[in-house]
Amino acid sequence: MSTAAPADIQLDASGRLRHFLTVEGLNRELLVRIMDTAESFASVTAQNVKKVPLLRGKTVVNLFFENSTRTRTTFELAAKRLSADVLNINIATSATSKGESLLDTIRNLEAMHVDMFVVRHAQSGAAHFIARHVAPHISVLNAGDGRHAHPTQAMLDVFTIRRCKGGFAGLKVAIVGDILHSRVARSEIWALNALGVDEVRVVAPKTLLPAHVESLGVVPYHDLSEGLRDVDVVIMLRLQLERMGSAFIPSEHEYFQRFGLTGRRLEKAKSDVIVMHPGPINRGIEIDSAIADGPRSVILQQVTHGIAVRMAVMSMTMRAGSDMEAAA
């Protein structure tokens, strides 16, 4: 019935980013613009004086319904480097004791005249829900919703790939691990395909792949050595340890045996392969320490890039939002 494509809600009338909820539906041009903007901020953050005044006088609320250190910290730094005021709100939610409704929380914060919500939530669709119900001048950035999307993580990953590889044409990328529960993987798949890589592979046992995974635009593999053959980029995903209790995999040991990234397996990939991981990493479960700390790893660069990419998305959405406010 309502067939609003996800892109509709996050773009304004002139096609600019109003919210950043998902990579799905965004065209290559816009993704490139985000990366180009991030590139300009990357030089700012490397300087001695790291602040620019683009968001001066604006209030950014980090609204985290799920714990996170890295993502929240880099969003906070990104906002501060854009000279915004930042409010961090952590709301622990449990299904059993529901307090204030999500909509009430949003209404209360709106009443404090804030300008942007950075939202993380354990349920898929949370950022869309909030974007659909906030006042028109407020921008919503999705910092991870359930298994659905983590678009800034995907953008910092493709930004890192572009910096290392110069572009996307001809690249083969393998995403390894718990694809089923991964919002990072879903967003990366959209971004990589939109940017025109040659092939996106997903490597996992069937228990950790979603139904009809090919429909997402990927080639599935159940054998890591096969899946790594001739790839240019390996993206390892964190294995949530609680998955063992739910019969997704038998043990950490067996998982590492079949799907852990070791030096020997990495030899199947191209010699200039880069190894990525959204963190936090489980050493010895999904990745060997020698690889995580080795010369092919760009894991810490990803973290650095995270700030520039988040600055880019914040400044772009806020610009679209300010125009809406002025028009109103």
Binding site: S124, G146, R147, H148, H212, S215
Partner: peptide, 10 residues
């Protein structure tokens, strides 16, 4: 199915 996999809904 296809839609649940795309939206990440259980």
């Amino acid at each position: 199915g296809v839609v649940s996999s795309r939206l990440g809904l259980p």
